[in-house]
Design a protein around this nucleic acid. Structure first.
Length: 466
RNA sequence: GGCGACGUAGCCAAGUGGUAAGGCAGAGGACUGCAAAUCCUUUAUUCCCCGGUUCAAAUCCGGGCGUCGCCUCCA
């Protein structure tokens, strides 16, 4: 029984999708004006874990993540660098998708782009105007927040408080500071689309409303984003969607906490950010993923080099166990163990209990380490089927979190060749060891070591790992 | 000013009424030809502080201190 923390009600609730067995998820994706930093990646990885777990629970999940490919920042960056906004957006969209893949995120079922849905957006804006929730002013169109009764409910803010903090840009023609742009009139030299209100482009918030409606319908089960999106972005989305359809927009709002560095939020504007490309020079993307899910998603997560190293070491420990088990599957004698199977079932249910509790990845990871410890303890008497079942369980649970414990880099063919060659060397070394020819034995080991291959002498015979 | 999150060992981090998970780092031991990996033991009588409720609190209530965030583009 999955329970999730709903930001709207500020309580953990039992998760019951609108349609039994099916879950619709909308995740706010990147604005593609630059490479995401690892704070952004924290959210994107967590969204992927949500989705993976829902799938493993047996739900048919439809996962939509937008790509914001037109907005102020893109226009600004395009002007600065002298490239067309579309070229810039395409470049960083490709980088986003590639890095997501490296981190082990599955592609969304749909990655809709704002510029490909301008027609849907215009329709939605027109609908809001027709219903009296929006008004055109000087080529812009604004949402009239005073017409939407429960504005502020998601952020838990009284209207007066929000008003006090609101700001009006010069040149804006809002009736109230809280009103926000649905359509922005074209400025000289800017990219534009034609609309009933003149040439211009969509505001940021409206694209999510239009695209979630198109792909997931009027009411979606889960909407995710970073906590910073709660206000104003999600508040505004909610107002637009519910004003247009008269139906609830989202059943469960899930918000991911910040990645902090040096005691403050990692952010582009603060200049204290690190990108995935920077970290990948030193760390495996899997280690980075492991680090990003090492704390509960709603807690702040600290970044430091030391923490990343700590995560990398922890993942290595799990990988060593998987390596040991693979070896046992190949080399150990056949055999089952009822007590061991019972233990595995217990681990499995503990893992799922942790994930059922609002996706408690930190607790779930602890179970992985418990499995590793138990398997390592019994590595001496590990029988083939025991090893196989343990391996399968670790792979299954790793799959839920998007973690791979085996190095997937080497192609299958290469792997077979390397395996054969190493077998020969290991055999030679064993012969040398039998006659206590340590010089030869150590030479082989050292030479392989310099190629990054470690030999280990185990009760089941020698094995190697990279 | 309004709203919210957080404060658990050297570092990170679970745990929301029943007597402190897990990881990293450190120390000691075992295993080993030497290693590597692994295992065992060890590191918080105590969970920011002070009161209160309770047979029982890290967990609930009140007060205080500290850190971070949102209220403006932002995962």
């Amino acid at each position: 029984m999955l329970r999730v923390y709903n930001s709207m009600t500020r309580t953990k609730e039992q998760f019951i999708p609108t349609r039994p067995g099916e879950v619709s998820v909308y995740s706010c994706g990147p604005t593609v004006y630059d490479e995401p930093h690892i704070g952004n990646w924290r959210s994107f990885v967590i969204f992927d874990v949500f989705r993976r777990y829902l799938k493993h629970k047996g739900f048919k999940v439809t996962f939509v993540q937008n790509i914001t490919d037109i907005d102020d920042k893109i226009i600004k960056r395009a002007n600065e660098t002298g490239v067309h906004p579309t070229t810039l957006a395409d470049k960083f969209t490709a980088i986003y998708l590639e890095q997501a893949r490296l981190l082990g995120n599955e592609p969304a079922d749909v990655h809709p782009r704002a510029t490909e849905h301008v027609g849907n957006i215009i329709e939605l804006i027109q609908c809001l105007i027709d219903k009296g929730f929006a008004y055109a002013a000087g080529g812009d169109v604004y949402f009239d927040t005073s017409r939407f009764q429960t504005y502020g409910a998601l952020s838990g803010q009284p209207i007066e408080e929000l008003e006090a903090g609101a700001r009006v840009e010069i040149g804006e023609m809002k009736k109230s500071p809280l009103d926000f742009a649905l359509w922005k009139a074209k400025k000289p030299g800017e990219i534009y689309w034609d609309s009933p209100w003149g040439p211009g482009r969509p505001g940021w918030h409206i694209e999510c409303s239009a695209m979630s409606m198109k792909y997931l319908g009027d009411t979606i089960d889960i909407h995710t984003g970073g906590v910073d999106l709660k206000f104003p972005h999600h508040e505004n989305e909610r107002a637009q969607s519910e004003a247009a359809t008269g139906k609830p927009f989202v059943k469960y709002w899930l918000h991911v906490g910040f990645l902090q560095i040096g005691g403050e939020r990692m952010g582009k504007s603060l200049g204290n950010f690190l990108t995935l490309s920077q970290l990948m020079k030193k760390y495996d993307p899997m280690a980075i993923r492991f680090y990003l899910i090492s704390a509960h998603y709603r807690s702040p997560l600290n970044y430091s080099e030391e923490l990343l190293q700590s995560s990398a070491a922890g993942l290595k420990r799990l990988q060593n166990t998987v390596s040991m088990l693979s070896h046992a599957v190949a080399a150990a004698s056949p055999g089952q163990d009822a007590a061991w199977e019972a233990l595995l079932r217990e681990f499995k249910s503990r893992f799922y209990e942790a994930m059922d509790d609002d996706f408690n990845t930190a607790d779930a990871i602890a179970v992985l380490f418990d499995i590793a410890r138990a398997a390592n303890t019994h590595s001496g008497e590990m029988k083939r089927e025991m090893a196989q079942e343990t391996l399968s369980l670790l792979e299954e649970l790793g799959e839920v979190l998007g973690l791979r414990f085996l190095d997937g880099k080497a192609a299958a063919e290469d792997a077979a060749l390397v395996e054969g060659l190493l077998r020969i060397l290991l055999d030679l070394r064993e012969e040398a060891r039998k006659v206590k020819d340590w010089k030869t034995a150590d030479h082989i080991r050292d030479a392989l070591s310099s190629l990054g291959i470690t030999i280990e002498d185990t009760p089941l015979g020698p094995r190697y790992r990279r």
